[in-house]
Design a protein around this nucleic acid. Structure first.
Lengths: 374, 374
DNA sequence: AAGCTTCGTTAAAACGATTTACGGGAGGTC
DNA sequence: GACCTCCCGTAAATCGTTTTAACGAAGCTT
């Protein structure tokens, strides 16, 4: 029971942080009782509880997270790995996950893979070392090699936004990419567009493949309609040049569908570079909707993803996996949840020139109701 | 030395995660030696080191972070608290800080205060419980009440982006708000603008006050020039209505300076709502520059902040505070670093109508070189 | 060759909390 | 009143790692 007033280097008197033993001593109880008061695991006499809380307050005691999580069976962190923090879609996702975590009394540990499977694996491994309750991952390719590690280590995880390759028995929370893309394509076709260009980042991504499939199905159903696909990559510059190169070439598509927010921006940049005007020279729909798209001129038609719901459902699913007896009840039934998107109809889509000549109707397309059929 | 093969609930054979003792046993050395190999704190015989690393690999051993940071003197996390994760400015900051942390072998723990000083304090307290090496904070008001807690607890911290109230001996890394705002204002005045509206979120924020001061100084130096200030808040809706209300009233300013990215968006929304056109009805400059502003029509003139440098300097400063003998060498000299911004001149600023009538020069302002004088 | 330093390994203590096992007192039943 | 149960507080064990202290071997000096 030796005293340890521990001086700091500069000699000033700086008491070390109070431990649970200090609190126990101040309240004249045992450390175990203090723990019981703070964690609430066992009942404690009200008078004693007050004394303990008083001592906690007086000393400014705050439990050491490392010590707590070392001994405790309770896991108090959840990891999240996303391709990039600066992409507003992922930023929003992380923000919502952080709120979910806080509401559950846990801390969210975020990691970025920067689109590199190797970094992703490193990040997943690093997070696994924290003994997290689970991981929420947006994989940067359809393989998600790091899943082996998680399975070996017994860490529950949920995949968000980007479905893995077919047949993987993995919990997946995503939007209904095919339906949302199909609805957008359907509207374009209905207006008379026959040359549609769909721009994806990479076909290695499940969400991109699904969106393309949705568009493809609609285009195939319309006689004389042609779908062209462009794989434009991830970096702004490469996207811009790739898109500009295509748009400068005849025959130019009458409608362009940018399959994520970075691509939408790339299309706008390319379009500006080569002097094309939306929607006069081509119509534009983007997957992902952001504030600035509403005030853009023309206002951009876009598919809005329900990111908060995505985060909520991912969290909920992970909670099920974590909960007591999780293995018995939900192990055999990996869920593949699909949330409906919402098509926001604005002014960046017009009737194509061919139709425009034939009919005398107004140039800009009339907005019909744009709710997404789930 | 009892065996513990620990079965999981569903009865499948699942060995517990290997510990350092397992590795030690497999390599026929003591746990201390394994630790020395992995942390590199002490020299280990090459042959033994190979044996240990082999055992680590074979068992898939990964040190438990909680146990490690409980015992170690080394602090392996750094906390970051920002007002909101979804604001691209903070998202970018967090992204860069995360990279800095990773490069330093630490993990960044991010927390959001959502603009609420109480939440901020809770978040800071929560992060302090992790025994972080330090904290990087963007406070949500000029008081930063949570600093008491940090000082009491002895946690080093650096304030970023928003300087505290005068006279606070606190490390602060920010941009040169006054100079950047002054340069922008100077350019507006030089074009002939005399009614300037500066829109801030809240005057409780140090960065806003500095930016206003920069504008004010320039306006005061020009005869007949008037500066009007609007405090528009933080939420998109309130900003939009406040700005719209002002812009609908005569006399309308000929130039608007939105003092952050959210405000810029608010101005654009308000402008669209009441049917005004930039730059015909008023010129617009925004603090903060983002990708979409370049492709906007008209392209938005903006002040670009050096966020990566901001993050780098903040990290570096924190490292100094953390490093050995930090108290002796740097304690008495809180630094107030100011990084230069860059004015990106685009098409959203025009010559005001008064001048336009008088002269026969082109309507849109000619772009002169726009580098920011530090 | 004795004595001293240096180097590398090990056993054991320590970090700060939670959990377990135990024990004493109160209350209830027969 | 004996006996059993329940409740609640305490002491001690424990989590998995790092650090400290001790120790033997090897190298160097004189």
């Amino acid at each position: 029971m030796a005293e340890r007033p521990s001086l700091s280097r500069n000699g000033s008197k700086m008491l070390r942080r109070p431990t649970i033993r200090d609190v126990a001593q101040a309240a004249a109880v045992s450390p175990g009782t203090v723990s019981n008061v703070l964690t609430g695991r066992r009942n404690v006499d009200p008078a004693i509880r007050e004394r303990v809380l008083g001592a906690v307050e007086a000393l400014g005691y705050r439990p050491d997270v490392a010590a707590s999580s070392l001994r405790s069976t309770e896991r108090n962190v959840v990891g999240a790995v996303v391709p990039e923090l600066t992409n507003p879609f992922f930023a929003c996702l992380v923000d919502r996950l952080e709120r979910e975590a806080r509401a559950a009394g846990k801390r969210l540990l975020v990691g970025a893979s920067n689109g590199d499977p190797l970094e992703e694996e490193r990040e997943v491994a690093a997070l696994a070392a924290w003994r997290p309750a689970g991981l929420i991952v947006v994989p940067c390719d359809g393989r998600f090699g790091a899943r082996r590690l998680l399975e070996r280590e017994g860490v529950p995880f949920v995949v968000v936004d980007r479905p893995l390759e077919e047949g993987e028995p993995v919990d997946t929370i995503a939007v209904d990419n095919a339906a949302a893309a199909a609805e957008a394509a359907h509207r374009l076709l209905a207006l008379g567009h026959r040359r549609v260009l769909a721009i994806a980042s990479s076909l290695a991504l499940g969400n991109m493949r699904e969106r393309l499939a949705g568009v493809e199905a609609e285009v195939a159903a319309v006689d004389g309609a042609e779908l062209e696909t462009l794989e434009a990559g991830f970096e702004p510059e490469e996207i811009t040049t790739a898109v500009a190169a295509r748009l400068a070439r005849e025959p130019r598509p009458t409608a362009v569908f940018a399959l994520n927010n970075v691509l939408t921006l790339g299309v706008l940049r390319a379009s500006a570079d080569i002097g094309l005007v939306v929607p006069d020279d081509f119509s534009l729909i983007g997957f992902d909707d952001y504030d600035w798209m509403e005030v853009f001129r023309p206002p951009l038609t876009a598919v809005r993803q329900p990111v908060p719901e995505l985060a909520h459902m991912a969290w909920q699913r992970l909670a099920e996996r974590i909960g007591p007896a999780a293995e018995d009840t939900v192990a055999g039934t990996p869920c593949h949840l699909r949330l409906p998107c919402h098509l926001i109809w604005r002014g960046s889509v017009a009737v194509p020139p061919e139709v425009r000549i034939g009919s005398s109707s107004s140039k800009s397309a009339a907005a019909t109701t744009g709710s997404c059929s789930s």
